[in-house]
């Protein structure tokens, strides 16, 4: 399994063997959101980086999930339609959101690595 990359919006990305990239939200994000009750998944289409591709609704509020890189969504996690709690229970595994084909194959490696993301979380916590 390839190492994870992260965005400042608390999404994680994992490069798959076929060049596609799986996206979810981090443990920090799901903890901040609280119990997830609904996930509006993206359409199987092209999204620009930063576009609101998905929405996650917790018991408290709705939050946008943004397209981490420009690309084409290939698959969504249908399990979340019936079991949105997977986002809380296993955010880095069964709680994945979608898989997409990035327009720029090298862009993923330029995102935050685990150390940089951990520093970001720590900075947030200390703020």
């Amino acid at each position: 399994m390839s190492e994870l990359r992260f965005t400042e919006d608390h999404e994680w990305l994992r490069s798959e063997a076929d060049g596609s990239v799986t996206v979810g939200i981090t443990a920090f994000a799901q903890n901040a959101l609280g119990d997830v009750v609904y996930v509006q998944l993206p359409e199987l289409q092209h999204y620009e980086q930063g576009a609101e591709a998905s929405t996650v609704e917790s018991v408290k509020a709705a939050s946008g999930v943004y397209m981490p890189l420009t690309g084409e969504v290939l698959e969504v996690n249908q399990q979340l339609a019936e079991n949105p709690e997977l986002v809380n229970e296993d955010p880095l595994g069964a709680g994945w959101f979608f898989r997409f084909q990035p327009a720029d194959a090298d862009a993923v490696a330029k995102l935050l690595d685990q150390d940089a993301y951990d520093r970001l979380i720590k900075a947030n916590a200390d703020a």
Partner: peptide, 10 residues
């Protein structure tokens, strides 16, 4: 307190 460690649903 908006929630405790148990979480809103539980």
């Amino acid at each position: 307190p908006v929630q405790y460690p148990l979480g809103v649903l539980k």
